[in-house]
Amino acid sequence: MIDISVHKKLQSTSGTINLDVDFHISNGKLLTLYGKSGAGKTTILKIIAGLLKPDRGSISVNGNIWFDEKRNINLKTQKRNIGFVFQEYSLFPNMSVKENLIFALSKAQDIKIVNDLIEIIDLGDLQSRDPNTLSGGQKQRVALARTLVQRPEILLLDEPLSALDDEMRIRLQQYILKVHKEFNLTTILISHDISEIIKMSDYLMELDHGKIVSQGTPKEMFMFNADSKEIQLSGEIITIERHGKDARVTVLLGRDLINISTDFETVKALKPGEKIRITSTHFNPVIQKMK
């Protein structure tokens, strides 16, 4: 169980943000943080890792205190049993893939874990390669393997998949879920991708300006029941065209564009780029396999 209650004043491009969060995660769960950039998500991970020091508060992991401002405890990053995969690639360019993993071994550790991880994350063909010759997805796989060498209890993933294409993303999601279960990790993931969040998380929190603004399981946060013949969809406005009293709104739903004709009055306050919710009653779906 990780207990976090921290406060930190942050200077960001949009001014000062007071990061103020209080939450806990049970062991073995995967928590996702999402929200606009600059909301303080990365800062939370860095605070847990000990790379940033909060102004006030405390962090405890399974009863061990990692940070307590009142008692002046601040465990060094090196002493915190964590894994961290960064958004940017963080492989050491002066070492080969396997050397990167070997570097991560602690003094008394057997090299067996390195070979096991190479197996689990399918790095066999890559192990003697130079990190600069790898693709983005391969680099993140190596980074994931490297951070697991020391058998961390907690895995922190700072948008590790955001720079990857869809196919690579899906493969890496599977690797992350695999090691999350196999190594019995407590994982905190930062992600912007709704389908990724729904697929991977046990629990999620939305952050805005340093505060948790909503939280729940993916079902609670994103599901709605279509049983009542009512459907709710969320999407993004692409264009609004006015035709006299009427308006034609083009909305992006996932990867589909739809046109909705409506009364201009109801949409005149909206602008392209805004997120909207569409509700429809008398929803009568016909389900067919895609051709």
Binding site: A49, L51, Q78, I82, F84, E88, S90, F92, F103, T147
Partner: peptide, 15 residues
Amino acid sequence: LSPTLKEASYVLGKS
């Protein structure tokens, strides 16, 4: 040098 190199090494427990 990218600051993540240093941070990544600290996270791996290296002094």
